[in-house]
């Protein structure tokens, strides 16, 4: 009943991975760094094109639609809309491959 014989879910059922409900402060910190890195990249690409007097549709669209890390509210940085979640929000760390995808905007009103 105690120690390593404790019948917990991973011990009795085999593989069980759980994602915590909330992100840790360090996860949030690293997430902010990643957001900023994408911001820097877009800025760099945009500046380089502007020097040559060119624009790219993808860059223009990103700049128009997406807020930068500084402009984002904490609510949008760390959570996203989910119609099945309580209060329609879940942690952004539940998104598959969340460290390599951009998830910045949510439906208006949620």
């Amino acid at each position: 009943m105690f120690g390593f014989l404790r019948p917990t879910q991973p011990l009795s059922g085999g593989l069980l991975w759980k994602i915590p409900w909330r992100m840790s402060s360090m996860q949030k910190y690293r997430h902010r760094q990643r957001l900023r890195r994408v911001d820097r990249l877009v800025e760099c690409v945009d500046n380089a094109l502007a020097k040559q007097g060119m624009t790219a549709a993808a860059v223009e669209r990103w700049k128009m639609e997406m807020p930068t890390e500084a402009e984002m509210e904490p609510r949008d940085k760390y959570t996203l809309f989910d119609r099945n979640a309580k209060k329609y929000r879940k942690g952004v760390h539940k998104v598959p491959k969340w460290t390599r995808v951009s998830q910045r905007v949510n439906p208006p009103g949620y």
Partner: peptide, 10 residues
């Protein structure tokens, strides 16, 4: 530096 490369980077 071309719009094509920029699109690929994006």
């Amino acid at each position: 530096v071309t719009p094509q490369t920029a699109g690929m980077i994006m």
